[in-house]
Nucleic acid binder design. Sequence first.
DNA 1: TCCTTTGTCAACCATCTAGTTGAATAGCCA
DNA 2: TGGCTATTCAACTAGATGGTTGACAAAGGA
Lengths: 119, 119
Amino acid sequence: MTDRLDRVFAALADPTRRDLVARLADTDATVSDLAAPYAMSLQAVSKHLKVLEDAGLVTRGRDAQRRPVHLEAEVFDLMTAWIERYRRQAEERYQRLDAVLADLAEPDAGRSETTQEAV
Amino acid sequence: MTDRLDRVFAALADPTRRDLVARLADTDATVSDLAAPYAMSLQAVSKHLKVLEDAGLVTRGRDAQRRPVHLEAEVFDLMTAWIERYRRQAEERYQRLDAVLADLAEPDAGRSETTQEAV
DNA sequence: TCCTTTGTCAACCATCTAGTTGAATAGCCA
DNA sequence: TGGCTATTCAACTAGATGGTTGACAAAGGA
């Protein structure tokens, strides 16, 4: 049942993988190119790329023995949509709370209909 | 060295924790309130809340024996900033690529200075 | 004072994760 | 053909994670 968002968030929870994504935002690259800067084996980087691929953040082409890695930036939208939804909801709540507090400040100044609980 | 973004992304990689955040966007709640809908122990939910707290996504108050949990929506900005930065960078790259391709379509129509590699 | 409610802490367990090394595969180059 | 390059696969390990149960702590209500 491990859903798409699970994998996307989990993929980006690792600093090496975030760095890979950051570098791939600039340009496509091969596995060995990507692995070069890190103090870890090529195989470890290959695994990280697999995680990114399973999350749909990255696709791989084929150029002879090389497997150029390409960032699929649209997947970011999935996360942004999730985050923004709840951020907006939380913000609306604060606005509602502000309204209630303003209401309390000037008592029965206009017979407000707000019967929502304050928090 | 496990940095702030690590914890925020990791916290949201779990569906139970995303659900907790979703519910807290609407209203503050106690641990037992939050735990009620899930087929798991109160202790497990308490642990999930600790993960959210360590990531800074949530704070806890004190009301007698109760520990009301409150969503700190600003932390979302951290993630959104990261995501948007690389999404934008990737989009700019595509635009650059589009320009290069357009350039190729109408050859030497203006002695373009672009010496950047295509991808 | 004792009991109940609310929550955390501790120990334990199974599974996942991030890394390792070594061997295998796949495609160029001579 | 043989060898070099690029990459993946397989087996292993240490440590993190997500869950369990049982015991404890803190505060309110009888």
